[in-house]
Amino acid sequence: MSCISIITPCYEPDVKHLNEAYESVVNQELPEGWELEWVIQEDGTTGVPETMIPQDPRVKFGAGRRGGTGITRNLALARSQGVLIKSLDQDDILTPGVLARDIEVLAENPDVQWTTSRALDLLPDRSTVGAESDPLAGRIEPGFVFEYWKAHNYRLPVHPATVCIRRPLIVSLGGWMGVPGSDDTGMLVAASMLSVGYFHDEVGLLYRKWPGQESTKPRHTEPTEWNLRMDLIRERTESIQEVWGMRSHGPRLPSI
């Protein structure tokens, strides 16, 4: 039996949002021979998240000292068992069938190391809004994400919250990047330089927009810190490009 691990960092969650995330996880239908685990890691030690959703053997809770989102994701990664790692924030919702699509592409294409999906913003009134930057469905060659990101004021062509990635690749990168607020962007840009990805044009995620969202707070876009984050992501990716080169799409990584 192969396992896909869903990684969720958790800090002061909203009970309604966390329960909607739970329902979206446990109602996924997986291909034969696959199982899932949902690894929820609290950024802190209150124990509150564990009281908010039903007891379920597929849900594994962890807690630790405050460290921010990236470090919290990495602690969850260390506790996980999956050969595939799927990102899910505590207030977002997986759409039906997304895990099966991720698994199918990665199982059938050994050179593809990560997938992303179309995402819709979920607004407070439950309406949804799509992005205009989605690429065509199919393979994403190394370098494409990075070049788009640089050319569009550090905006990605795919949504980093939808990533599903092979375990050896994300572990070799050191997990999510240790920067505040852009840890998933840093991880995806680096992974996309090393390897082939894939974009699903079916909606795979409802990305909740609400007042308590971290990315809506002024500190997320404070210019000095924002520029430092973006400069480090750019320098890291250029260093990866220089060290590994583009001759063979980076290091060889095992298939599922």
Rank of each mutant, 00 (worst) to 15 (best):
M1G: 02
S2F: 01
C3R: 04
I7L: 09
I7Y: 00
I7G: 01
Y11L: 10
Y11G: 03
E12Q: 12
E12D: 13
E12M: 09
P13F: 00
H17K: 15
S24E: 08
Q28Y: 00
E32V: 05
E32M: 11
E32W: 00
G33P: 13
W34I: 07
E42W: 10
G44Q: 10
G44N: 04
T46H: 04
T51Q: 14
P54M: 06
Q55V: 14
D56K: 08
D56P: 06
P57F: 01
V59E: 08
K60Q: 04
R65A: 15
R66H: 11
G67S: 12
G68N: 05
G68M: 11
T69D: 08
I71R: 14
R73K: 15
R73V: 09
L75Q: 07
L75C: 07
L75Y: 10
A76R: 12
A76Y: 11
S80P: 07
Q81W: 00
Q81P: 00
G82F: 00
G82K: 03
V83D: 05
V83I: 15
V83L: 02
S87K: 06
S87P: 01
Q90E: 14
I93T: 04
I93V: 15
I93K: 07
L94K: 10
V98G: 06
L99V: 00
A100C: 01
R101Y: 03
L106D: 00
E108G: 03
E108S: 08
D111S: 15
V112C: 07
Q113F: 06
R118M: 04
L123S: 06
P124K: 12
S127V: 09
G130H: 05
G130S: 12
D134G: 10
L136R: 14
A137K: 09
E147V: 09
Y148S: 12
K150T: 06
A151Y: 04
A151N: 08
N153Y: 07
N153C: 06
L156N: 12
H159A: 11
A161C: 09
T162N: 06
V163A: 15
C164D: 03
I165L: 10
R166F: 02
V171N: 05
S172L: 13
L173M: 13
G175I: 06
M177L: 15
G178L: 11
P180L: 12
P180H: 11
G181I: 08
G181H: 11
S182L: 12
V189N: 13
A190R: 13
A190C: 15
A191I: 02
S192F: 06
M193N: 12
M193A: 12
S195D: 08
S195P: 07
V196W: 14
V196C: 11
G197N: 08
G197W: 11
F199S: 01
V203A: 04
V203Q: 13
Y207F: 13
S215P: 02
S215W: 14
P218C: 08
E222G: 00
N227P: 01
D231S: 14
I233F: 04
R234K: 05
R234A: 03
T237Q: 08
T237F: 10
S239W: 10
E242K: 10
W244T: 05
G245A: 13
G245R: 10
H249N: 15
H249R: 11
